[in-house]
Nucleic acid binder design. Sequence first.
DNA 1: AAAAAAG
Length: 478
Amino acid sequence: MATDSWALAVDEQEAAVKSMSSLQIKEEKVKADTNGVIKTNTTAEKTDEEEKEDRAAQSLLNKLIRSNLVDNTNQVEVLQRDPSSPLYSVKSFEELRLKPQLLQGVYAMGFNRPSKIQENALPMMLAEPPQNLIAQSQSGTGKTAAFVLAMLSRVEPADRYPQCLCLSPTYELALQTGKVIEQMGKFHPELKLAYAVRGNKLERGQKVSEQIVIGTPGTVLDWCSKLKFIDPKKIKVFVLDEADVMIATQGHQDQSIRIQRMLPRNCQMLLFSATFEDSVWKFAQKVVPDPNIIKLKREEETLDTIKQYYVLCNNREEKFQALCNLYGAITIAQAMVFCHDPQNSELAGSRALKGGPQVALLSGEMMVEQRAAVIERFREGKEKVLVTTNVCARGIDVEQVSVVINFDLPVDKDGNPDNETYLHRIGRTGRFGKRGLAVNMVDSKHSMNILNRIQEHFNKKIERLDTDDLDEIEKIAN
DNA sequence: AAAAAAG
């Protein structure tokens, strides 16, 4: 019997018929969901503070609504480790038999029905006994909400110690995901969330009493081992967001795996990411025992809503000039400019964008308080352009971002193209069905070569753009 | 190369 041949089917009936393989796959097409429009409540005058809260809530809502709308033609592949168990897929949240407070939280966030990935992932994640899951699907398909829901449904609010642990690759993403957890869990008054991130210090000997912990790898590792703020043996659900960077050798592998080893044997592991490079994918299957696997195929289709261009420059100086020429176009909405390192961000911000009032810098070198303030201002639209590094390449969700500029193309430490980071970076735009624009700056034979290899990898033409032709730029930006 | 630590 060939264990590696996946049975393909257009619907569940066919999948059942074709179950001769020990592994099952389900593939289906879905139609766009047309409902789910949410309106802002614009009644009487409100204080600044209230308005700020409203905006934050609205943006969170829009983000989550999106997961009900975006994945219109995607195909889902489901691979179950246990072929004898039926392949469940839910079309409503009621079918999941969630705690009433949690269901209330789900609906309060504007969810009407599960997104495509959630239809399959939720029953798998909530099954008893718990099963591990590795899931790949592009941004905006409801990954965050899916694993947040899994954590919230497993948690026992009466127990005052950490039971669910979620790791994020960056400080900013941990804050963002934490907000989703808080929102969705807000009808459980006794349920609390702790942020295990840089700058969040506890007294010696203190214990974390919050039931859910979101954090970055270094701090979480310290809290679990050296500082003993968390008893890792009591963790029931372990989530790796942006899982591929979390377990990649060049990423946070060391710390993530050390944390994983401290967890109990029966701890449920959930890995989510938009990208899994081949070797990382294999490693993921090695470190996660008996995983269920879900893939939302056709990741290249995300690129269809994003127009990609490149600008040819002769040297770095010309890149500054080109970026300067683009300023008018990119401030129509909001833009993110990605640089190779904090120094280049600094230069791009000061020299090309003149450190303008609309421009903000964000890099890992900065103090966390400052980082939190900058990302908050950018979310609120107080800054139009965020000049940053790979720290913001993944997961950061700011709806108004319509332009991504790769001031430096993404490369790994050997100087090879970093296709995964490229996809994540340009995925900061073109969301919610909106059009997005990505502009890549090329300034040498070497970087042209990198760009060509990125084109080949995604099999997508990246066209040349002349930054001296302002009419053309205006046209594209609109 | 960036990020990630109370080192």
